[in-house]
Amino acid sequence: MTGPNTADRTRELGIDFGPLARELEEHQYPTTSDELVEAHGSAVLELPGGEETLRELFELLPDEDFESAAEARAAIFNTVSERAIGRKGYSDRTPPALGERQEWPNESF
């Protein structure tokens, strides 16, 4: 996800990266999780259910190697806690297609 607007996007998949979005893009790669923590460990990621720092997330990934900012972001998405979920059990899927259910409850869509 590189390009002119990548560093300007601070919110992705429910995580608000804030200034860390640009810092990850401008960081020199390849790098390690330890080097990112040293440079940006106090950066706060805002989640729907709270916040976490980059240091807290990457404690779970010691000595991880990253070839790009996209790889570092992917590691963040894979490491955030359940506070990133938002509404648990929520589904935005549409109801089943006709014939998939025998009885329809009283629903309005």
Rank of each mutant, 00 (worst) to 15 (best):
G3C: 05
G50H: 10
F58R: 04
G14L: 02
T6V: 13
E46W: 15
E12D: 02
A97V: 14
I76S: 03
R73W: 01
D63R: 08
S91H: 13
A72N: 01
G89M: 02
L98F: 09
F17W: 08
T31A: 13
F17Y: 12
R83L: 12
L45Y: 15
E59R: 03
L24T: 07
V44P: 11
F66C: 02
Y90G: 10
D8V: 07
W104E: 14
R9S: 12
T94V: 10
L57K: 11
V44H: 08
Q102N: 06
M1P: 12
E26A: 13
E25I: 10
G14K: 04
E71L: 05
T32G: 00
H27R: 03
G18Q: 14
P30V: 05
P4A: 02
E26H: 14
E67S: 13
L54D: 01
N106W: 14
P48N: 04
F109E: 05
R55N: 13
A69Q: 05
E64R: 01
E35M: 07
H27G: 01
A97F: 15
F109Q: 04
S108K: 10
E46C: 14
Y90P: 12
Y29M: 13
T10G: 08
A84Q: 13
L13D: 15
V37K: 00
E51K: 13
A74P: 04
V80W: 07
D92W: 10
R93Y: 08
Y29A: 12
D63Q: 09
L54T: 02
Y29K: 07
T2G: 04
T53Y: 00
E23M: 13
T10E: 14
F66Q: 00
E52I: 08
L47C: 06
F58G: 12
W104M: 15
I85G: 01
L24E: 09
E56F: 06
R9Q: 15
R93S: 02
S33P: 02
E56H: 09
S33F: 00
S108Q: 11
G18H: 14
L36S: 04
A43D: 08
R83H: 09
Y29H: 11
G14C: 02
E56T: 15
T31W: 03
R101C: 03
G99W: 09
D16G: 12
S68P: 01
Y29C: 13
T94E: 13
G50C: 14
D65Y: 06
G49H: 06
Q102H: 05
T53G: 03
F66M: 09
A72E: 03
A69F: 07
P95E: 00
